[in-house]
Each structure stands twice: as C-alpha cells, then as structure tokens.
Simulated scan of single mutants.
Amino acid sequence: LKLENKAKRKLQKQICQVVLDHFEKQYTRELGNTWTNVRDVLTYPLCWQYAVLLNKFSQSAELENTLPVKGYHPAFQGPLPYLPASLKCYVRRTPGRFPAQKHQAGKLKEYYLLNAASLLPVLALEVKDGEDVLDLCAAPGGKSVAILQCAYPGQFHCNEYDDLRSRWLKKTIESFIPDPLTNLIMVSKLDGTQIGDLKPELYDKILVDAPCSNDRSWLFSSDIQQATLRLIQRKELSFLQFQLLRSAIKALRPGGSLVYSTCTLSKAENSDVINLILNSCSNVMPVDISEMAKAVSQEFTFLSGTQQHELLVLPEKGRAWGPMYVAKLKKM
C-alpha cells in the first residue's frame, strides 16, 4: 500500500494541472458523469493497458505460445464484418506492458505495442488486396503496419507532413515491413490539406488519423507553457481536421470510402467535424459501423448515443483503451 501511495503521489506530480482543469470543464459538460470514470483512467498510468499486434512478416510461434501463458487473449473474437485471419492482436485485462523490441537494422520486429482501440479505424476501413490506399497522417506508423497485416494494397501511400514524425514513420516501416514490400510503399511529406488537389480521385480507401488534442499525452505535458499554448491553439485543430477531410474526399475515387479517427474525446474535433463535412460536401454519405462496434463491445467501452456512422471508445479500468473516435464516410 505504501508503494502504491508513493506511486500515486509521483503520478499526481506529473499531471499537468492546466490541461486537467481545461478537460474537467469541457468534458464534464460534454460527457457528464462518464467523464469521472474516464478521468480516473487517463490520469493513472498504472492502470493503462497495451495490446500486442503480431507482425505477420516476422512470425514467431514461440511468441504466439507465450502470450496466452502470460494472460493474453485475441482482442477481436466476435463476428466482425471485417477481420482478416492475418491480423493478430492480443490483449489482457490486467495493466502492464509487454517488453518493447529495439530497432535493429536488417531485422524485422515481431510485434508492435499499441492501444488496442487504434486498430478500430483499420478494421472500419476494410482494406482489400489490390486496393489503392492512402494513410494521410501516417506517423508513427502503427496503423500503416496494421493495414499491411490485413491486406496487400495495389499502391500504399503513407504521408506525414511533419519532418520529425516522418522520420519516425520511415523507421517503423523499416522495422516491420520486408524489403520487397517496402518498395511498393510510397512515403511522402506532403501537406495533407493539398493532397486532394495533387492526387484527385486516386484512392479506393483513405485513412485520416488526424492531428488532434491527444488527451492521454496532453495530460502529462511537462512544459506548462507549451501546454497552455496548445490549449489556446486547440480551437484551430478542428479547422485543420476539416481541411484534411475535404482534401481526402477529393483524393478518393467515387465509390471509395474514408475513415476519420482521433485520439481525443473532444466533440469539436470529432462529431462536429464529421457533421460539418456531411453538411458541406454533397458527394459523401455516412457509412454504418455499428455492427463492428457491437462485435467488439466485449473488449471496448463506447459512448452511448452516437450516430451509426461513428463511435467513441471510452477508457475504463480493465478496458483502458482509447480515447478513440472513429467515423466512416463513402464518396458517391
């Protein structure tokens, strides 16, 4: 108990009060009582969980046998509308992190550690072999890696505008994807808001995992000035997200579909952005993803009362996944 109290005190010190106060006001208003439970998880990293996504390009039978012994089980077991057998992700109910693997030149990693909710946008996108795919804001690369576990796209374009994050993306691809396949992946540093004009109607599927106010990491900002600035600039994010979506719609072929995701609870960056797109773009329609949500409801907690084309994963103890907002649209 002493140790736990010590850990608690240490964690309390690390929480950025400016951010917590801001979230407290906003999310109490938007989520009501639900926020209290979510806050308890987000502010207490000792209860956070990490999923293990296996890399099919570097399979290890030993690893697959070890995971169940350590209390892990497959994250996705329900009758999902889309679940390729090659996508293998393991989770466990208890907190803690599987040891990470270091990057080694010429050696592929066997697994990727991630928040299990990060795979929901990939499952919603339903990429099939031969389709042309764009991951518009691809760094650090976990979702790109997950897409390649699911299918072999015709062309796969991974874009990341930020220089540092783009290097991170390249390293991730290098660590998980074998050479012959990396040659088919185009990594670019284009401005995502311009891609629609540069590459009109070129893709069958687009993932817009948009820059957002990352609730989990913002709560632990060590630089108060930077945190304060972020909160001031937060309002501008929804406009950027809208521009990225509009650009993605231009880049999408008619009949193609798009998944938008963020890792924030903020309504302004989630359903408000999607509603704005639906109201301003006559050539897109919402796609029902409620069947997917229902199939994974054993493992994830969702905000109730959302539309059928969207979901919001709420972290709770024992299922500390998210926040993750996912919405799906189709171009007509």
Score class of each variant (00 low, 15 high):
Lys143Arg: 06
Asn275Arg: 13
Glu126Leu: 08
Ile173Val: 15
Leu231Phe: 01
Gln226Pro: 00
Glu269Phe: 04
Lys70Leu: 14
Glu131Cys: 06
Leu46Pro: 08
Pro45Lys: 07
Leu20Glu: 05
Asn183Thr: 11
Val208Arg: 03
Val69Arg: 15
Ser166Ala: 15
Ile177Met: 12
Thr172Cys: 13
Phe176Asn: 02
Thr66Val: 09
Ser282Tyr: 14
Gln307Ala: 15
Leu83Gly: 04
Asn159Gln: 06
Asp204Glu: 11
Lys88Ile: 13
Arg216Pro: 01
Asn283Trp: 10
Ala105His: 06
Arg9Pro: 01
Gln26His: 06
Arg216Val: 05
Gln233Ile: 01
Phe302Arg: 05
Val41Tyr: 00
Ala210Cys: 10
Ile206Tyr: 00
Arg29Asp: 04
Val296Tyr: 10
Asn214Met: 07
Ile195Phe: 13
Lys330Leu: 02
Arg39Trp: 06
Ala295Cys: 12
Leu329Asp: 08
Leu314Trp: 02
Glu201Asp: 05
Glu160His: 10
Asp135His: 07
Trp218Phe: 15
Leu207Arg: 00
Asn283His: 13
Gly142Pro: 00
Leu67Ser: 07
Ile249Asp: 05
Glu269Val: 11
Gly322Trp: 01
Tyr152Gln: 13
Leu3Gln: 09
Phe242Tyr: 15
Ala146Trp: 03
Val187Asn: 03
Leu258Tyr: 03
Val52Glu: 01
Gln59Met: 05
Cys281Arg: 10
Leu136Asp: 00
Lys189Thr: 13
Leu125Lys: 02
Leu237Trp: 00
Lys128Thr: 03
Val259Asn: 03
Asn270Arg: 12
Ile289Arg: 01
Lys109Trp: 03
Thr262Cys: 08
Leu252His: 05
Ile195Gly: 09
Lys267Ser: 11
Arg97Glu: 12
Asp197Phe: 12
Val122His: 03
Lys10Leu: 14
Pro315Ala: 14
Leu120Arg: 04
Val287His: 09
Asn279Val: 11
Met186Trp: 07
Asn275His: 14
Ser266Trp: 07
Leu42Val: 06
Leu244Trp: 09
Ser188His: 02
Pro200Phe: 11
Cys150Val: 11
Ile249Lys: 08
Ala139Glu: 01
Glu4Phe: 11
Asp163Val: 13
Val69Ile: 15
Thr301Val: 15
Val259Asp: 02
Leu207Ser: 04
Ile173Trp: 04
Ala124Tyr: 03
Asn275Lys: 14
Ala227Val: 07
Gly256Ser: 04
Arg9Asp: 08
Phe220Gln: 05
Ala138Arg: 01
Ala320Ile: 06
Pro99Lys: 13
Glu201Val: 04
Leu258Ala: 03
Gln298Glu: 13
Ala7His: 08
Pro95Tyr: 10
Leu136Phe: 00
Gln49Lys: 14
Cys137Glu: 00
Pro200Asn: 03
Tyr152His: 14
Ser261Phe: 06
Pro121Cys: 10
Ile249His: 07
Glu310Ala: 08
Val284Cys: 15
Gly154His: 14
Arg39Gly: 07
Trp218Thr: 02
Lys8Met: 10
Lys331Val: 05
Tyr325Ser: 08
Glu4Arg: 12
Gln226Trp: 03
Thr264Gln: 10
Ser60His: 07
Val133Ile: 11
Arg29Glu: 13
Lys56Met: 04
Thr228Cys: 04
Ser217Lys: 14
Ile249Glu: 01
Phe76Val: 00
Val69Ser: 10
Gln241Phe: 14
